[in-house]
Simulated scan of single mutants.
Amino acid sequence: MKPTLQLDSHGRLRHLLTLEGLSSELLLQILDEAEIHDQALRGPDKRQATLTGRTVINLFFEPSTRTRSTFELAATRLSADVMNLQIAASSTSKGETLFDTLKTMEAMQADMFVVRHEASGAAHFFAEHAAPGVAILNAGDGRHAHPTQGLLDLFTIRRYKGPDSDCFKKLTVAIVGDVLHSRVARSDIHGLRTLGAKEIRVVAPPTLIPAGIEEMGVKVFHDLDAGLAGADVVMLLRLQKERMLGAFLPSLAEFHRDFGLTRARLAKLKPDTIVMHPGPINRGVEIGGDVAYGPHSLILQQVSHGIAVRMAVMSMILGEPRAPVRAKRRSRR
């Protein structure tokens, strides 16, 4: 395999910046590795020695609770030394450049940076300038990508719609909400396309649909009921008010009326339809409070799966290669 920024000359992960361009074989290898870690996390001893002596720095330029916490927990479970850099109190607030920040942290003998940044392409910048042997893991960059969220979403779908990996070829997935500002939506679409999802839909008002998104192989819907009809998976997106620079919506109430998942809309779906959301949720906006943790919802399972998926990525990049083995998957609910 020809080496890329993300892969070494043997096709092994060197950085994880985006799901775009990764092969289905590699995606399934990551999911299988995550299955192994998920099973281990359910045992009495949750700590593994995989990354003993390694240092992982969480470099978050944007606020985060779920993502930063699960990355920290994942690295700790693998026995890495973990440092969380408080950006608001760091030298970047005094004018230090990203390049200087990277090189300063490298001088502390860090092995991996987990980077979240408001600018699209920031993780790629770090990867392009990182020293040999220093890995970059993208925890979300602008509107561009959130690859581990995409992977944990794929993991969750396979867990509940599998167990075989061909399950994606039978699924219609509806991605609903603020697609325009969503790096999660882009990562999910890349992953679902690579694994052969039967149909991928994006459902939103015209102002929240990126221009040319049809070129990614999705179908666009501006009517929620039509977009949800026959869906096996409904992936809701947080309305990202902090990224909106103009009047994209008349009001939050109107968005909920036209595009919010309510109990009445849920009742029209297939009995085995699953509902997902990357969090944090806006109750009464993209989802009703009585739906968020109802019987169709896998929102909390996604959070739990995020630990195993991030452990898988970290161990595949920094740990010793594991012989390809199909993990025994747990049964569905």
Rank of each mutant, 00 (worst) to 15 (best):
R66H: 03
A204P: 11
G288Y: 03
Q240C: 04
V303C: 01
Q240Y: 10
E25M: 09
E199H: 08
R14G: 06
E62G: 05
L195C: 01
S331D: 13
T97Q: 06
P163Y: 02
A74D: 10
R183Y: 06
A226M: 11
R193Y: 00
G196K: 04
L300N: 12
Q301P: 02
G260P: 02
P295G: 13
R243C: 05
Q301R: 12
P206V: 12
D8W: 09
G279D: 00
K268T: 15
H296V: 00
N138S: 10
L236E: 06
D166V: 10
S23K: 03
A131G: 12
A185F: 08
L26V: 06
G196M: 03
R159D: 03
L171K: 01
L300T: 11
T67L: 01
A40K: 14
A323W: 00
A89H: 13
A88W: 02
S297M: 04
L266P: 02
I317K: 05
E118H: 15
R263Q: 15
A226R: 13
L318V: 11
F168S: 01
V202E: 05
S79T: 07
P147A: 10
M235W: 00
V234Y: 02
D225K: 12
E106H: 04
S315F: 03
R257M: 11
R116T: 06
P278L: 05
G140P: 05
R201S: 07
P132N: 08
F113H: 10
L7Q: 09
L28R: 14
L171I: 03
R329G: 11
E20A: 14
